[in-house]
Design a protein around this nucleic acid. Structure first.
Lengths: 233, 233
DNA sequence: CGAGAAATTGAAAAGATTCAACTCTCGTGG
DNA sequence: CCACGAGAGTTGAATCTTTTCAATTTCTCG
C-alpha cells in the first residue's frame, strides 16, 4: 500500500486550512477510483455509500423525472466535491452522476463523514460553503428560468461552462468536454432545435463556433451582451 | 428577564435530539422579535447578522434581479429556520425576507453559530438536513420549470402551499395567508394574467375558489391531476 | 466505407405574454 | 356611515417566442 500523495489534494479549496498531516490522515481513508467516459458513478435513488472529490475529468449530474425527461443539474470539474448526500443527512443520491470523460476521483465512505467532519472542522466548513454556493446556483437558475428568454439562458449557460472549464484555443475558448446541443437544451430548459438555431445564428455572427459535440466561444463579450439584454441585438 | 420557555421550540424538528437543558441554553442566547405584516425582516445583500426560527406567522423570501424583477424563493411557515447564511459560510443574505402576516421569530447572532453548532451537534445535523431539503426543493423547481407547462407548475405550487400551510374550511382547504395572483406568478415564472386565467378556469370546474388575496382548494385530487398530466383535461 | 448519432432547417401550431380596457373589493377618511 | 380611490383581479385580442413535426444533411467512429 503506497498511499496517496497529499499533493493530490493540497491545493483544493475543499481542503483549505488543513495541515499536511491532516491530509495524509484523510487520504488514508480515501479510495481512488477510475471511471471510463460514459460510465455511471452513481445512480439516482441509489443508496448513498460514498462521497467524492473529482481529481480529473468531468462529470454530468442528471436528474430524471418520473416520465423520463432528463435535466442536467450541473457539471462537476476537477477539484470539486460531488455526491455529498451524507453531509446533508440524506441516505440516497438525489441524482445520477455520469462521467463525460475519463475520470479519476477519490471516494470516502459516507459512514466516515461524521467522524471526519468533526475531526477536521475546516473540512466541514469548506463543504458547507460549497453547499451554500450550490444552493445559491440553484436559485439563480430558478430565477433565470423565471425571468429570461431561451436565448439569454443559453448564453448564460455557455458563459458559465466557459468560465468553469474553458480551454484557450486558436479559435477561442473551447468547452473542455464533449457536449451536444441536446445537453445544452437539458441545462437550459429548451429543445435541442431551439439551441441549434441559436448556435447557428451565433456562428453566423462570429460569436461561437460549433462542431459535433463541440462548442467554441470566439467572442465572450458579445455573448455576454446576448445574456444580458432582453432586446434583440 | 423572565427567559423564554423551552416549550416554545421543544417540538420543532430543528431542535430534535436536544435535551431540555440544551434548549434552555439555546434560548438564553436567543432574542424574540416581532414583525408586523408587510415589514421586512432582512434585505437581500444586507450583512447577515442573525439567523432565525419562525414561531408564528408567515414569511416570504424574495430575490430581486438586477433589473428589478422579483422571484419568490419560498414561503417560510411556523417552526422553520430561515436566514441561515451563517451555516453556509455566507456573510450577506442572498434574498430578502418579508413578513406576510404578523410574525414572531427567535433570532440568534450569526457569530454564535460556530459555537452553538459545535456544542449541540444535533442542531448542526438538523440544520444541514434542512439545507439539504432546500437544495432538493430548488432542484425540483428547476426541473419543473424545465419540463412542465405553466398550468402544471401553478397546480404544483398550489398543492405545495396547501400541504405546507393549508387550513381546512367549509369550502375546502385555504392557503393560510394573503396571497395574490401576482405572488403565484412570481412563484411559478408566469404572468399574473396567465395565473388569473387558470384560476378562473379552475373555479369554473370547481377545483378552486378564488377571492381577493385568497385561494381555497376545493378539490385537491383534481388539482393533482392537472399537476401531473401534460394533456389537457 | 457504412451506419447511427448529431445537427440543421423550414413550416405549422401551440402556449404564454403583452397590451389594453374594464370591474370588483376593501379600507379609509370626509 | 358612505363614497371614493387604489390595489387586485378579469378578460379579449393581437403578438411573439418556442415547440413540434418533418425532412435532410453531416459527421465520426468502428
Amino acid at each position: 500500500m503506497a498511499g496517496l500523495d497529499p499533493s493530490l489534494i493540497a491545493g483544493l479549496p475543499t481542503f483549505a486550512g488543513l495541515e499536511r498531516k491532516d491530509l495524509e490522515i484523510l487520504l488514508s481513508h480515501a479510495q481512488a477510483m477510475r471511471f471510463a467516459a460514459g460510465s455511471s458513478v452513481f445512480e439516482q435513488e441509489e443508496e448513498a455509500r460514498n462521497f467524492f472529490v473529482l481529481l480529473d475529468g468531468h462529470i454530468r449530474v442528471v436528474r430524471t423525472t418520473p416520465d423520463g425527461q432528463q435535466v442536467i443539474v450541473r457539471y462537476i470539474s476537477e477539484g470539486e466535491l460531488f455526491g455529498i448526500a451524507a453531509a446533508l443527512g440524506r441516505t440516497t443520491y438525489p441524482a445520477s452522476a455520469i462521467a463525460v470523460a475519463d475520470c479519476v476521483a477519490l471516494a470516502w465512505s459516507n459512514a466516515q463523514w461524521p467522524e471526519l467532519s468533526a475531526r477536521f472542522p475546516s473540512l466541514g466548513a469548506n463543504t458547507y460553503k460549497t453547499v451554500g454556493n450550490r444552493l445559491q446556483d440553484a436559485h439563480t437558475r430558478v430565477i433565470e428560468m423565471s425571468t429570461e428568454q431561451v436565448e439569454q439562458r443559453v448564453a448564460h449557460a455557455l458563459l458559465r461552462l466557459v468560465k468553469q472549464t474553458g480551454r484557450q484555443t486558436d479559435d477561442g475558448i473551447e468547452i473542455d468536454f464533449p457536449i451536444t446541443r441536446q445537453d445544452i437544451a437539458e441545462m437550459t430548459g429548451a429543445t435541442l432545435h431551439t439551441v441549434s438555431r441559436l448556435l447557428s445564428a451565433w456562428e453566423e455572427s462570429g460569436i461561437v463556433k460549433g462542431g459535433r459535440k463541440r462548442v467554441v466561444v470566439r467572442n465572450p463579450h458579445q455573448l455576454m451582451l446576448k445574456a444580458e439584454s432582453r432586446n434583440k441585438n
